[in-house]
Amino acid sequence: MAEQASIDTSAEAGEGVRRRDFINIAAVSFAGVGGAAVLFPLVSQMAPSADVLAQSSTEIDISAITPGQAIKAVFRKQPVFIRNLTPAEIAAADKVDASSLRDPQTLEERTKEGKTNWLITMGVCTHLGCVPLGAGEGEVKGEFGGYFCPCHGSHYDTAARIRKGPAPKNLEVPEYSFISDAVVKIG
C-alpha cells in the first residue's frame, strides 16, 4: 500500500514539475513584458509634445513684401527667409549654368511654378547651422547678391545656392504651399 502510494506520487510529481516550471516561466515572462511595456511611455514622453507639434506648420502673410525685400519668419523655432526677387535677381540666377554648381539646382526647381519670384528657404547655413546675413535690411548679401554666412564665409547667390565657402549644400527649401496670393503655409 505504502509502495503503491509512493509510485503514484512520483508520477504526479513528474507531471506537476512540468506544470510548475511552465507557471514560473510564465510569471517571469509576464514581469518582463510588463517592464518592456512601461518603457514605451518612458521613451515616448521625450518626443515633441502636442503644443510643439501644433507649431510644425506656420502660415505667413507675404502681401507686404515688395520686390527686392526679404523677411525673416520663424518656422519650427528656426529662421526661414522669404524673399521677393526682383527681375534682375531672377535673371542673375538664371544666367548661371546649374550643372557647374556644387549643389546643382535651378531657380525654377527651388521655387513654385508661376511664383518664381518667391524664394523661400530656411535661414540655416548648411555648413554648421549659423543664420546667414542678407535677409534683413542693410545686411551684407555676399559676393553673389544672395546671402552670406559670417561664421565661416559661405556665399549664397540670389537663388540661395552655395557658390563659395565651406557649405556643402544650397539653403534648404522647406515644404510649403501658397494658400492664396497673400498667404504661404510652410510645413
Binding site: 510548475r20 507557471i23 514560473n24 510564465a26 510569471a27 517571469v28 509576464f30 514581469a31 513584458v33 510588463g34 511595456a37
Partner: peptide, 19 residues
Amino acid sequence: GFLLAATVLAYLAKKNVWA
C-alpha cells in the same frame, strides 16, 4: 487586465516555490 493576469501567475508561482 494585464496586472490581474500577472498577479494570478505570481501567486501560482509563489505557491510552487513554497510547496
